[in-house]
Structures are given as C-alpha cells and as structure tokens.
Design a protein around this nucleic acid. Structure first.
Length: 791
DNA sequence: GCGTTCAATGTACCT
DNA sequence: ACAGGTACATTGAACGCG
C-alpha cells in the first residue's frame, strides 16, 4: 500500500549485526507509525592512486572479502575538488564497514578509504533524499513481528521514501513539557539518596498533571505513574529544561534503585546517550531547552526562569524558589502548595518557550538533515558540517575524514582605533554578510585553493592581500555554491515575507526558515578555520579575513579622501560622520571598487567612545541607547555598578551634563555606605571554566564555588557562581562569599564604591576630565561635610 | 619587611 | 568543539628600597 507520512525521528536498530532503519512517523490520518527498512545499503569509498588499475583491484577486493563485500563499482568523484577515481565498496552489513575500510586502506593502489565514518542514519537520509520533519510517500507493507513498540501500525518498506513536493505544513504534534523537583536537605540532590518529590507536566491540549511523592517521600509510585502517563498520552516531543544533563539520568537511577526500568519511550527502551551529548528517547523527540541557551547570549545567568522571561514567557507568580529550599518547602505543610505551584509554573515555562522555538528547530533540522532531537544539542560546527555533507553529495564530493590537526592561529578582522569623546550624527556603515560574500566573490573554498608551488590554472586565480594565497577563479568552489545557495534562498524567503501583511502561520514558518539559513550561512567562515572540520583548510579562513581587513582599510581611506571623517571601525563596520550626500556617494564608490554591498544600518544622534576599542554607547533617533562592550552589558559586574554606568551614559548622551552625572554617582555611593543597596544588586557572577582545584590563582568566584561545594552544592564547568565581597583583612579572594550565605551588614561597601561603581562611572566620565580620584574626592568631601553638619 | 611593578591568569565581550 | 581581536581586574612573583 502507498503510505504518506511526516518523518518525526529516525534511529538504527542493530540485531545480530543487522542494521535496520526505523523511521518514526505520523501518517495522514494522524496515526503514529513505525516504518522499518531492512534493506539499507552500506558502502564506503576506496580512492585509487593515479593510474591504478581500478577494476583489477576491485576484483581482488571482491575475492578477498567475498563473505562481506557484495558489490564494487568504479566511480568518478571529487576529493577536495580534485577529480579522483574510487571503488565504491558495498558491504553486506553496515557494522562491518569500518573494519573492512581499515584493511583496504593499506591495499596497493588505494590511497585511502572514506565515508566509512558516516552514520547509517545520515547515509540513509542523504543518499535517498529523505528529509526529517517533512512529508514523504512510500510503498509499505504491514509488519506484525516487531515487538515492544508503541505505534498504531508498524510497516516494512522495501524502497526508500520519496519526499513530497508540498512539504510546508506540520501535523499536530503531541507535546509534553515537564519539570522535576527533588528532595535534598543537604546540598545537591543525589539520586542514590534523594527522592523525586514532584513531577509536573503540561501538554499541548492544555492539560496539567502533577505527580507528587507520598508523605514519606517514596517516589516509586510517581515515577511509575509518570511513565504510565507518558505512555498513554504518547507524546511526539518531550521537552524539559536541563534533563539531558540531570533529570534523565536521575530518573533512571531512581527507577533502577526501585527495581524497574525507565522504559517509557516508543520502543520500551530507556533514555540513552546519543551523539553530540544528546539523550535519545526512541521514537520520541527529546528536546532540552538548555541546549538553546547559546542562541541567547543576552541572558547572562542561565536558568529556566531567565530564559523564559527573555522570550517573553512570563508566569504570573513572582516567587522563584531556590533549589536549596525545596526540602524546607516540602517539610513545611503551609508551604507545600507553593512548592507544587512552582513546579507547575516551571512546566508552563518550558511549554511556553518551546512553542516559540519549535518552528526554528524544525527548520534547522530540515536544512541540516539532522534529526530534530539532535539538531539543537549539536554544536554549530557539526550543524554546518551536516549541511555541507548533504551538499557534498550533490556535487560528487567525497566526505573527508576528521583528522587530528594542530592548532595554529591566524590573523582575523581589523579594528580601527576610535576617536575618543562625544560625536554628533554618526552613520554606521555595514558590509552585508561580509565573510560569506568575500568567500563567494573570491571563490574561497577547500577545493579552489592552489597550494604553494602548484602551477596556476588557465582560468586564473584570485590572490589574497597580505598573505598571497591563491584560489582558482572557476569553477565555483564547494563553499561558494553552498553559500550562494543559502543566501539566495534566504533572500527569496525574506521577499516572500515582505509580501505578507499578517502574521500567518506561514509567515512564522518562513521566519524560522530564514533564521536557520542565517545561522548556517554565518558559521561557514568560522567552520573553514576550525581544526575540527572535515573540510579544514586554514588558508581559506585566513584569506577571508585578509580580504576583510583589506576591504575595511580601503573603505576607511576612501572615506577620508571623500572628506568623510571616520570615527571607528570593527571588522565589517565603519562609523563615519553623517552627511547624506557624501555618505551615499561613498557607499556607491565602495560597492563599485570593492564589489561588496554596504548599507547605512543606522545613524546615531550622538555616540560616545572612550579610548578603548569594542566599547561605546550610542543614542538612537528614537531616544534609545545602544550600549556595546561596556560594563552595563557585562554579566560579571555588580548590578549597582551597571545601573550607575547606564544612568551616567544616559545623562552624558541626552542631558550632556557631567555635573549631573557626578551628583548621581555620589548619591549611589552614599547609599552604598549606608547599606541601602539591596544585596542582590551587589552580586558578582562569574563562570567556572574548570574544576575549582585546577585553578592556578586564587580567584574570588573559585573560592566562593569551593564554599558552595563544601556545603553540598553540585557545581560543574560552565556554571555561574554568584558572590559578594565582605569586609575584613586580606586579598579580595579571601573575602568573597557565595551570595546565598552573605548578610548585607557584612558587605564591604568600600569595595563596591572603589572597585565597582567608581570604575564603571569613570570609564565614561574620564573623557570629561573626571577621574576615579576626582570622584573619590568628591564622595569623601561629601562625607566630611555630613560629619560637620552632624557636629 | 614593605611597597611597586609587571607578566600571567581569567573572564567576558565584539564582529 | 565555528573564527580571531580586545578590555580589564586580580593575582603573585620579582624587584628595589631601607
């Protein structure tokens, strides 16, 4: 029978060395179905030496490995752009590939073997043009003997599915968001000791359900009921915040302790570690919102509440209960209701957030061919690579192996020295998608690079400035085609979006798609210079940045020659004095000379620069402030210092009165002296970048982390530690204390004045001849004045 | 023994 | 585990001085 389905998830099933492909899907009637393909082809390439006798070698291989190799073909392919002849070697079983390739690699006449390291799921999707999160059609036969699976029907298929043309709509997916609370009276909960007390769930039909441990904190029943509930609701997607790191392992260990398995997924298996640090739940897309955090660097302290709030998902209740208080809330009957509500709130936060991000995830999955449950947990480099592997197939490029490479840095973008002080009417010129466009214009790609000493091709070369690397002008390289493709599709989508007046579902999908395209496009330059890349060729990235420097430098010279004052510039932007006529002429000249598009992204009414690069503040025409690089937007300064600097900047840029700014700084300093600033505004957050004992110096946040760990907290690399500085003798690090243990009366207000508020304020006021010393003196003066008043 | 100087360490930012 | 460029605070050893 013919079956039309939407592909939700894909996994391999290995039984007696046989690799089957399992496609979890939703059919047109909304049935959850499983398609099993028993006939997956497994192959790899053995690239031949120049002039090697391919057919002879192939015959030999067939003979030597006749129990394993089923077929060989001589094929023409490309490898780093070079034409190569290769033997495509088909094996009976996918599990044998790596071993066979290892042997054949050493054969006479074979230069190397490739693509034995491509995962069977990727191979299947790529070779057959099957796309995750998309509709397909296939000839299917009902199969009865696949036990232990939760699917309305199980089919076997003998030929791969064919994607349908009209792919745009997503079926109604069943979504379950959950959040877990554990009981621990001492420090971080440990699965061997501490029970799960509350499991809260919210589903897409608006239904809330909570599982609460018994009075004596026995979690046997709730974990079982939680699983029963999952099985009966049968979600397609299960979402959490942080479950890949904690909840799944925790629940698993609790279950095992009680003597049962956490086997709620559609194949009755337990959550298990997959690729890219991801946890797989077979047949169910497991999404962890914590994996999205690098998309939102503006959220400085990563947690569910901040994350949700940043996206506009707010819960009416204001109270956040600290993890360390869960036990107290459980033990105090009057607080029970609040604890339960908090759990439910979190499940709602998870649900509200994934609703905003699911379209993007789906689009990224479609673009990269990575299954939906992997794409968000995969690092950028692997997403780019997955996209490139898909593209490589189209041009017959063999996928290189990942090699151990030594890291050798190269020169990057050019940053111009800013002109310090206040400037009026400043236009910001931006090169649109600079690196992608440079790579297209100069055909920078692993397969167009001409190695030093190699002869120049007849079609000519582009020579990178400063470094002199050469790239053949034609044909278009692998990256060139990929980038052109990405940019063109994105432009088309944005055009389509412009035609839409209302925010339809289609608009949302288009928007998600263009975002996915954008992040992949922008990451290709970085990928090219990444030593972990399969297609790593350092000169490609090096040449792109060399052209970038040349372009920004030349443009700044052109501006000067046109009588346009240049205030600042960084990599792909130029800050210049605004003059409509002159700017537009410059824009046109740059475009003509340098072959890259420039736009005037905005004009500042007034902009402030200190002497430092990468730090400035600009006043926009609508009255808003852009603050860049300064303490205000840094996560490792106390809130009080950031607020002071923000106000100082506003006063300087709007009112333009340093005196008023000083008054303000003074008032806060005095508030600090009198402990009138709440403790939470004094917390300094810093990230642990290694295990505390590995630090070479004694740093405040490390000391604070050690104190937290001593009290049972679970802290790992990447966690933020919040501390405050207390009064006392000795160096700073000895006076740092985790903010949860701190008391406002013990806070060292002098530190906050001299090392936080004053430097932050002086960063701006120095340009107006007010130094930290001045400020300090003014504050002291105020203090004595008060004393005199007092006496 | 004490204050000053400066490289090293560490973190977070910009494009 | 996409790149390099940059600012800045704090530590801690080296240094100079008395």
């Amino acid at each position: 029978m013919k079956l039309v389905f939407w592909l939700l998830d894909i996994n391999t099933k290995i039984q007696n060395d046989n690799v089957d492909l399992w496609l979890w899907a939703i059919d047109k009637s909304g049935n959850r179905v499983l398609l099993v393909d028993h006939g997956v082809t497994a192959y790899f390439y053995a690239v031949l030496h120049d002039g090697a006798e391919g057919s002879y070698i192939a015959k030999n291989i067939m003979l030597s490995y006749r129990s394993i190799v089923t077929k060989t073909e001589i094929v023409q392919r490309r490898f780093f752009g070079k034409r190569v002849a290769a033997i495509k070697i088909y094996c009976k079983k996918a599990v044998q590939i790596a071993k066979v390739a290892e042997h054949i690699r050493k054969h006479d006449g074979i230069s190397d073997c490739y693509e034995d390291d491509i995962r069977p799921t990727m191979r299947y999707l790529r070779d057959n043009g099957v796309i995750p999160c998309s509709w397909h059609q296939v000839e299917a036969k009902e199969e009865k003997n696949i036990p232990d699976t939760r699917a309305t029907k199980v089919y076997s298929i003998n030929s791969p599915p064919i994607p349908l043309e009209n792919n745009s709509f997503t079926p109604d997916l069943r979504l379950l968001a959950f959040s877990m609370i554990c009981y621990s009276s001492e420090g971080a909960p440990k699965p061997d000791l501490n029970p799960v007390i509350v499991l809260s769930t919210v589903t897409n039909n608006g239904f809330e359900k909570q599982f609460v441990a018994s009075q004596n904190k026995d979690d046997t029943t709730i974990i079982q009921e939680f699983m029963t509930y999952i099985r009966s609701f049968d979600p397609d997607i299960i979402v959490s915040y942080g479950a890949n790191r904690t909840d799944w392992t925790y629940l698993r260990e609790r279950s095992h302790k009680h003597g049962f398995l956490l086997n709620f997924d559609r194949a009755s298996s337990e959550p298990h570690k997959g690729v890219y640090g991801h946890v797989s739940t077979t047949g169910i897309v497991n999404i962890d919102l914590a994996d999205f955090s690098n998309m939102f660097p503006e959220v400085k302290v990563q947690n569910l509440a901040n994350f949700a709030k940043n996206l506009g998902v707010t819960i009416e209740r204001k109270r956040i209960i600290d993890e360390t208080s869960f036990a107290d809330f459980w033990d105090t009957p009057q607080k029970n209701a609040e604890l339960l509500q908090y759990g439910l709130d979190n499940a709602h936060r998870v649900y509200g957030t994934i609703k905003l991000l699911i379209d993007f995830s789906i689009q990224l999955s479609i673009l990269t061919l990575m299954p939906l449950d992997q794409v968000m947990s995969a690092a950028t480099g692997f997403r780019v690579e997955s996209y490139l592997i898909k593209q490589a197939q189209k041009i017959g490029e063999i996928v290189p192996r990942r090699l151990e490479q030594t890291y050798v840095p190269y020169t990057g973008g050019l940053v111009l020295l800013p002109k310090p002080g206040l400037h009026e009417n400043i236009a910001v010129l931006d090169f649109k998608s600079m690196y992608p466009n440079i790579m297209i214009t100069y055909n920078l790609s692993p397969d167009t690079y001409i190695q030093a000493g190699d002869p120049e091709p007849s079609e000519g070369v582009y020579v990178a400035p400063e470094i002199g690397y050469r790239f053949r002008k034609s044909p278009p390289g692998f990256y060139n085609e990929a980038l052109t493709h990405l940019l063109n599709i994105r432009a088309a989508i944005r055009q389509k979006m412009k035609q839409q007046t209302t925010r339809t579902v289609e608009y949302q999908v288009l928007n998600a798609r263009q975002k996915a395209l954008k992040i992949i496009t922008n990451a290709i330059y970085g990928y090219a210079g990444w030593i972990g890349a399969r297609w790593y060729i350092k000169p490609v990235a090096e040449a792109a940045s060399a052209w970038g420097r040349h372009i920004i430098w030349t443009s700044s010279q052109m501006a000067k020659n046109d009588g346009v004052e240049v205030i600042y510039g960084d990599t792909d932007s130029l800050f210049v004095k605004y003059d409509k006529t002159k700017n537009e002429k410059l824009q046109a000249d740059i475009q003509q000379t340098l072959k890259l598009e420039v736009e005037i992204s905005h004009v500042y009414v007034r902009v402030f620069f200190s002497e430092a690069k990468k730090r400035y503040a600009g006043l926009r025409q609508d009255g808003s402030l852009d603050i860049v690089g300064l303490e205000v937007i840094r996560g490792d300064w106390a809130e009080v210092a950031k607020r002071v600097q923000q106000h100082v900047l506003e006063i300087i840029l709007k009112v333009q009165s340093p005196e008023k700014a000083i008054e303000y700084v003074k008032s806060i300093a005095i508030d600090l002296q009198h402990n009138r600033i709440p403790l939470e505004d004094l917390i300094i957050w810093k990230t642990l970048t290694k295990p505390p004992k590995n630090y070479a110096v004694r740093a405040p946040h490390v000391q604070a982390a050690k104190m937290l760990i001593a009290r049972g907290a679970r802290l790992t690399i990447g966690d933020k530690v919040g501390y405050v500085i207390q009064t006392g003798k000795g160096p700073l690090f000895s006076r740092a204390i985790p903010y949860v243990f701190a008391k406002i009366d013990n806070v060292d207000s002098t530190y906050y004045i001299t090392n936080q508020v004053l430097p932050a304020a002086a960063r701006v006021l120095k340009s107006f001849n007010i130094t930290e010393r001045n400020l300090e003196a003014i504050i002291k003066e105020e203090k004595t004045k008060r004393l005199i008043d007092y006496f």
